[in-house]
Design a protein around this nucleic acid. Structure first.
Lengths: 274, 274
DNA sequence: CTTATTTTGATCGTTTTTGATCGTAATTCG
DNA sequence: CGAATTACGATCAAAAACGATCAAAATAAG
């Protein structure tokens, strides 16, 4: 009941900014300037920090919302439980380099592919996905042609699967398919659900290149259903914590291995994605 | 503005300060100075101690309350209340009554059908939809079997359409389909996009009953593409602001008309946020 | 009543944040 | 393919906020 925008600090401003971005999906900088009544310079600076924390993604002409799941207000102190998250993000950065503009890309569900999707927002691409969260990321974007694979939703994960999905995949061809896994061992790649695995097999058949994204903790683990054999996979993107044992093993196969560097330094200004 | 009678000790002041901080979530130092009528230096000192005890968190420009489990303070979440929004909600309430438990229901995109979807969350149903926002509503629900119609995403609206969608609809049968429209005139029902209209025709063919939800402002308006004729529609749900002219016209057809009462009571608190 | 200790308020130099300007890069349009 | 327009990042000066220091007022003790 007092002044409406009394909270005139950078933090409060960024919170409001993020609110606007979330609501609209995409906002231009002049719009934000009018809406928040600060200079464009300030907007740019805030956006820089907002992008760094992964909550938004800048492009020429504005910002996309990529909303991290962490709605919790966090100060500059690092979250202790981010070990695995750093790996996923590093993998996503490397995997994003494998994608060229105007590619047709298939994205599976899963947290790592979701991170990859966040990196791809704003680029001119054709995206095919069976993941509801991934689809939400791109749905506001003009630069992306988005195709959703229909089918029944798997409740926990928010991905479609089943005969509808598989049938639709048969008539689709993509250049690169990015798949996630629950486990990797010497026999192949695993996931936890039989129907999902069947859908992922269809994905592989629809793709010219199959790329697996998996953090190093997945290695040596198996799961219920075997999805793919080693020789069916073209490229594998893993964080550099992968043991030398596995590196050597993969060397002997004709699967490409890409190791994603884990940037532990707080060098945040050098990462530019073109 | 209150009496700061004899309780002018530092402890009492800090207690009041914390009260203000808790209430507002965030306060600037000048605000606290005005509110407590002491100098800024004193405020700073108090804040220092308050931060040390972990009850508040200072930042440049002010203080955040961190006292207990931070009720994540939303700044302004207010949706600018539309007049039309009340109508959509009234229509949604009536339309929800047409749905029985364990029905198979098809939901089109659009703001009115979205309101309907919100009313259906939690009920045991099979839901088929081409709308990304609608799918998100149900994706976390255990009681719903959710099927998404695949296909290309129409950017602005977040619904799938096109040949994939149509093809998938051919193999699907639902009991009731709820469709939204952009306009209604004496010739039939209109929407703005040709491909979307084609998809909606397929929806109608897949449904035993076709139900149109449209608020009264849509009547008399046409749009680019005619979707359906009057005789293809079983039931029409409209708010009670519909003119008598249109009521009489519809009376002469064999389309069921359901008028949704507009509750003018301020029952705006029942909208729940997932 | 005087003195010592604590608390408060004011001042000043330093740091952070902000807004404007300008050259460069990207995008659009002809 | 080149020109015009728009958006971007870097730089710099002004403004705001901060911490530290010191004097004045209030409180407590001798």
């Amino acid at each position: 009941m007092n002044s409406q925008t009394s909270a005139n600090t950078s933090m409060a401003r960024r919170a409001r900014m993020l609110d606007v971005i979330r609501q609209q999906g995409f906002v231009s900088i002049p719009e934000l300037r009018d809406s928040l009544e600060v200079s464009e310079s300030t907007i740019r600076r805030d956006l820089e920090s907002l992008e760094e924390s992964g909550e938004a993604r800048r492009t020429h002409g504005g910002v996309f919302y990529t909303g991290s799941v962490t709605t919790v207000r966090q100060f500059q102190r690092g979250n202790p439980s981010d070990g695995a998250w750093d790996k996923k993000r590093a993998i996503a950065l490397e995997a994003a380099k494998l994608v060229n503009d105007h590619d047709t890309v298939l994205l599976d569900g899963g947290s790592t592919t979701y991170e990859l999707a966040k990196q791809l927002v704003g680029r001119p691409l054709q995206i095919v996905t069976n993941s509801l969260p991934v689809a939400n990321l791109f749905s506001a974007s003009d630069s992306v042609d988005l195709v959703i694979l229909g089918g029944a939703i798997h409740n926990r994960t928010g991905v479609t699967h089943g005969p509808f999905t598989d049938q639709m995949l048969e008539t689709i061809n993509v250049q690169k398919a990015f798949l996630s896994v629950a486990g990797v061992n010497e026999k192949g790649f695993y996931n936890s659900n039989l129907l999902l695995v069947e859908t992922e097999r269809c994905m592989m058949r629809s793709a010219d290149r199959t790329i697996i994204v998996a953090d190093s903790t997945k290695f040596g683990r198996s799961s219920l259903a075997r999805m793919l054999e080693w020789n069916q996979v073209d490229t594998l993107v893993v964080d550099e914590d992968l043991s030398t044992l596995w590196r050597d093993r993969i060397d002997e196969l004709d699967t490409n291995l890409i190791l994603a560097p884990l940037n532990n330094s707080q060098d945040t200004h050098s990462n530019s994605i073109s």
